[in-house]
Write a protein that binds this DNA or RNA. Structure first.
Lengths: 185, 185
DNA sequence: CATGGCTATATAAATATTTACATAGTGGTT
DNA sequence: AACCACTATGTAAATATTTATATAGCCATG
């Protein structure tokens, strides 16, 4: 699977499991997600395998935090995962499957399904736009003069922006085609 | 999970597990995939739950086939899955994660990664175009006069065509930006 | 007639993922 | 003081998924 490598990648700077989960909720959200109950055991295993080291840091708020750092071996594992080439064709888009069989329900439900889908895409687009606006206003180098470290993150963001814009428009188009049918019938 | 519902949806006409796997390899490929070893137990369970019935049909080629048919209860389960609204935000795109951390490897590997990604998208786009050409040449109603049963399948196909076209162009753009940097440096 | 490939079904073992639960301190509200 | 929300780490149980293996007949190729 990819989660160990995702965590290794996100540990460019030291962080706890809880921190990593927070990071999932931000820029990474549109292409990966994981629960804390999955993250913790994976971090333990990575430490056991010598990919990470950990340090207990007392916290002023709540229990002490277990901060993980990437080892040279962890970095090398990340590199070879990327060097092995892109991991594709493992996508599972449940909403497209639902659409594929949408004729199973009545027209009101079809319209409602598509409207909900459009809302979801629009919401995600908004989230990514907010990230972009924030980033570009804080860094005058955005997007073309960014250092390498950030360039690829910007490309990832851009793919998300393009995708959700396209999918929102596609939903609109589908809705128009559907509504045209109901008025004609 | 969604696999039971995906199988229920694909069983609009009776089929064996092997047949269903073949169907995964066609139009459904760009948004879902499953192994036979996962399909067989799910079919068994669906039968146990009264969603499907099965019939053993002797075959002229190889062992006898177990043909599943959807029951009224199976159809109703499919309907309620769709009525519950779109299942979103469960995507895991490993290749975008790899890109996100692409600065971990050297420039030659970065270029190679992106070229492989572009090839993969281009290949998928080709597959979907072939499906579309085949379909539109066989059915003069394509795409706007299609019956409801096929309209939503066409919309799904269209979203795939748009997506892979966009992603291929995006890869090209990324490669140009990357190459511009190497020549400038 | 041995080898490999295709159709076809299925189990076993390993791994990945989700959902529910357990624990524990801090700070605020009712 | 009871309750809730938030930070923080984790375990347990259930479920989902992949990879490897087993079986078995049919057909073509050498």
């Amino acid at each position: 699977m990819s989660l160990p490598h995702v965590l290794l990648g996100m540990l460019a700077s030291p962080a706890s499991g809880y921190d990593l989960k927070q990071r999932f909720g931000q820029s990474v959200r549109h292409f990966w997600h994981a629960e804390l109950s999955q993250i913790y055991p994976v971090l333990s295993k990575l430490e056991k395998d010598g990919m990470l080291t950990s340090e207990n840091v007392p916290s002023d708020k709540g229990p002490s935090r277990k901060i993980y750092s990437r080892t040279a071996r962890g970095t090398s594992s990340l590199k070879s995962w990327i060097s092995d080439g892109p991991v594709c064709r493992t996508e599972r888009l449940a909403y497209l499957t639902q659409l594929f069989f949408l004729d199973a329900v009545n027209m009101a439900q079809r319209i409602s399904f598509m409207e909900n889908l459009r809302s979801d895409f629009a919401e995600r687009l908004g989230e990514l736009k907010a990230i972009e606006e924030n980033w570009s206003s804080e860094d005058p180098r955005y997007p073309d003069e960014l250092p390498d470290q950030e360039l690829y993150k910007q490309m990832t963001l851009r793919s998300g922006l393009m995708k959700y814009k396209m999918m929102t428009e596609w939903c609109e188009e589908c809705l128009n085609r559907m509504k045209k049918r109901t008025t004609e019938a």
